[in-house]
Amino acid sequence: MGSYAIRRLLFAIPTLLVISFIVFGILDLAPGDPTGQLPLTIPPEVREQIREALGFNQPFIVRYGLWLQQFLINEPLNLLEKTCDGTWCADWFASSETRLRVTSWSTRSPVVDLIIERTPQTLWVVGMSYVVGILIAIPIGIVSAYKQYSIFDQVGTFISMIGFSVPTFFTGVLMIVIFSVQLGWFPSVYDTTLVVNDWPSFWLQVKQMIMPVMVLALFNASQLSRFMRASMLDNLSQDYVRTARAKGVAEKIVLLVHVLRNSLIPVITVIALSIPQIFGGAIITEQIFRVNGLGALLINGIQSADYPLVQTLTFLFAVLIVLFNLIADLLYGMLDPRIRYD
């Protein structure tokens, strides 16, 4: 197990390097000019100087190397410095003045600071939607499997089919039409500046989170409940279930202890695998409800041709995918003793 984990970790490094190279290369190969967005009144020699200041007169490999150094060495050092500030290790990493950081072209602030600023909103909305989705999906999956082909199962199957066929950008807009335009229950725009310090503001926060969370939660739940159902069905027909029933274990315990535990193993890995996809899917939901999280940051960066920001964010998404793939594989091995990685 340990050697497998190390092997997988070592393999993740070249994968991520190749991905970062692809991301960097796509942006670099693009025929567009990074100074193309600037006003046309800028004289050509000044434009040339701007390009030089952005580092565009250097060869591709040098720029790629510098970006890697800034992102993979300088930024972690900065983070360490910040966390160590004022403690025993304060003077270990204290040289942030000399370290170059990945800087956003449009806002002139370090990209990593922007990302840290935007992450909480995304985590709140997306994370909450995931929790709600799981809480909806697991009971539905259990009941659907236990009462296979019953009315509940049929209706559940139909709804979950709708749930993952109807795209989130349509359910989101539909929810806005119904609940904010017609009924006026919830605000259609997510207000990030809201400070939660008492009950009324907490209630406002809940109200503005309901719609984005539910849109994503329904989408997740419809996929997860199918997995849960299939996994429960696989286990319900196993011999150990018959054994447990034969020796007189209560039906509730058979179902909720014996079968549920075993059925959760593949479902947990599916959950882990799809967490990074959620960050991608959240791009659309964030756009509908104007949540200014990571997705909105990426869209802004793309629209203002902010290459460093887009490169870093896309690469971060890739890191998440690789990381959660690894976690899912390791979890599977840990949860299911029948799986041996040797």
Binding site: I19, I26, A30, F317, I321
Partner: peptide, 23 residues
């Protein structure tokens, strides 16, 4: 195939479209 599966598809699609649309 593994590499392609690890690519963040939606962000990449957005970037590629933005960059190559005009040409």
């Amino acid at each position: 195939t593994d590499l392609f599966l690890a690519l963040p598809i939606l962000p990449l699609l957005l970037v590629i479209i933005l960059l190559f649309r005009d040409p």
